[in-house]
Computed example of a mutant assay.
Amino acid sequence: METSISLKHAIEQIVKEKGIDRQVVLEAMEQAVLTAANKKYRNTRDLEAHYNPETGEVELFEFVTVVEEVVDSYKEIDIEEAREVDPDVEIGDSLGEKLDASGFTRIAAQTAKQVIIQKVREAERETIFNEYSDRQWEIITGMVRRFEKGDLLVDLGRAEAVLPSKEQMPREVYRPGDRIRALITDIRMTTKGPQIILSRTHPSMLAKLFEAEVPEVAEGIVEINAVVRDPGSRAKLAVSSNDSDVDPVGACVGMRGARVQNVVSELRGEKIDIIPWSEDIARFACNALSPAQVSKVFVDEDSRALEVIVAEDQLSLAIGKRGQNVSLAARLTGCRIDIKSEAKAAEAELQEFSSYDGTETPGQEFNETDVQEVEQVTEAAASEEKTE
């Protein structure tokens, strides 16, 4: 009786403290008794274990099949001997006999404890995996724990995440105990449990920060169409509005630049150009090269290549330091961009014209060109606010 009471108590305690389903605990107990019995009998018998809620015990049963001639005495019984137990039995029936399971109770309790601990871990891992997989591409706040081979381990409360070295911002320094915000980019189930991967360099990190700062973005009035970054240095954000009364650039910049400044502060001073998005690739390219002013654009739609002509004093601004501005603009538009000064373009056109033999159209550098003069492109672009 004492054993049954203690077993009942153990089950109730596990269910209450660990929050595990009662059926899971009972199955673990039954499996533990069955495993111990099979080990003793060397798996020679057909055994089953069942928890009896009335007695509070795990009962063990041995089953034998009724046959005419016994081949395996551990699993079979002949018809005559079987009818001494049950007169109505027929060949092919299964007879069950309850065995003494008291010898397995203590072993079962110890084994069940290990099984239950494992099931608790599995349940917790599954819960964490499901919770965070639903939060992929969200920004989350955690606490820095330690470094491991350059990777940053972050405590998220119920789980631990990894910020790989390649996903960390250049020149950012963290110490254990520091708070950190990062984007959940991936979650994988491993043998050690869920592995949550974070990033502070992903373009979506920038988009999510603006979504948190700008109500119009969160509500879908302003749409972020494209984002490119040189993490820690500079980024370009292309936005559009679904409401003609809402200026998308102004909404993202905020009053006196408050909204964009909050994002810049979070990204440790990363400069952000917010530009109007346009379906017109030439206009979009002019916007993307901001703050440089564009004089003329040649578009080859087939190969998605652009030749951009700028004034001499705008050339270095358009290209940017180490080519950063034109590189970001090319990634933002998805086009190859070649920038020339007006003097270089005029010189190239003169050389091409002088070598013209009448078989080709002079001055046509691409197969198909769409030449847009500064009056057509930059006047419209100039009316739209740009910010660096």
Score class of each variant (00 low, 15 high):
residue 247 D to P: 10
residue 230 D to N: 05
residue 228 V to L: 05
residue 367 N to T: 04
residue 347 E to H: 04
residue 60 L to M: 06
residue 189 M to V: 13
residue 129 F to A: 02
residue 321 K to F: 14
residue 217 V to D: 02
residue 200 R to Y: 15
residue 270 E to G: 00
residue 145 R to W: 05
residue 4 S to I: 07
residue 124 E to P: 09
residue 294 V to H: 11
residue 295 S to T: 13
residue 306 L to D: 01
residue 165 S to K: 14
residue 186 D to E: 14
residue 85 V to H: 07
residue 125 R to A: 09
residue 298 F to I: 15
residue 175 R to G: 04
residue 111 T to D: 01
residue 159 A to G: 04
residue 67 V to C: 06
residue 384 E to D: 08
residue 237 L to T: 08
residue 110 Q to G: 00
residue 297 V to P: 03
residue 286 C to A: 15
residue 315 L to C: 11
residue 320 G to M: 02
residue 205 M to Y: 15
residue 86 D to M: 04
residue 288 A to M: 12
residue 326 V to N: 01
residue 183 L to K: 15
residue 228 V to N: 05
residue 136 Q to P: 00
residue 240 S to F: 11
residue 210 F to R: 07
residue 283 R to I: 12
residue 367 N to Y: 07
residue 249 V to Y: 13
residue 376 Q to N: 09
residue 195 Q to M: 11
residue 382 A to I: 00
residue 201 T to S: 10
residue 71 V to C: 00
residue 202 H to Q: 07
residue 374 V to E: 09
residue 255 M to T: 10
residue 125 R to E: 05
residue 24 V to Y: 05
residue 234 R to D: 07
residue 76 E to M: 09
residue 149 K to M: 05
residue 318 A to F: 15
residue 193 G to R: 08
residue 86 D to H: 10
residue 181 R to Y: 12
residue 205 M to G: 14
residue 307 E to S: 14
residue 188 R to F: 10
residue 26 L to A: 01
residue 29 M to P: 01
residue 237 L to F: 14
residue 118 Q to A: 10
residue 67 V to A: 05
residue 360 E to N: 02
residue 369 T to A: 05
residue 82 A to Y: 12
residue 95 L to T: 07
residue 112 A to S: 10
residue 159 A to I: 09
residue 63 F to M: 09
residue 53 P to L: 06
residue 199 S to H: 11
residue 160 E to M: 11
residue 26 L to P: 01
residue 128 I to W: 07
residue 261 Q to V: 00
residue 274 I to N: 14
residue 323 G to H: 05
residue 344 K to H: 07
residue 237 L to V: 14
residue 234 R to E: 08
residue 256 R to C: 00
residue 125 R to H: 15
residue 15 V to Q: 08
residue 171 R to E: 09
residue 334 G to M: 13
residue 40 K to H: 04
residue 165 S to I: 14
residue 238 A to I: 10
residue 162 V to Y: 09
residue 54 E to T: 12
residue 258 A to S: 14
residue 318 A to G: 12
residue 80 E to I: 13
residue 166 K to T: 13
residue 106 R to D: 01
residue 161 A to C: 10
residue 379 E to V: 11
residue 53 P to H: 04
residue 310 V to T: 08
residue 34 L to H: 03
residue 213 E to Y: 05
residue 107 I to C: 00
residue 146 R to T: 09
residue 246 V to W: 03
residue 369 T to F: 05
residue 40 K to R: 14
residue 117 I to K: 14
residue 66 V to F: 06
residue 335 C to N: 08
residue 372 Q to H: 13
residue 307 E to D: 06
residue 187 I to L: 04
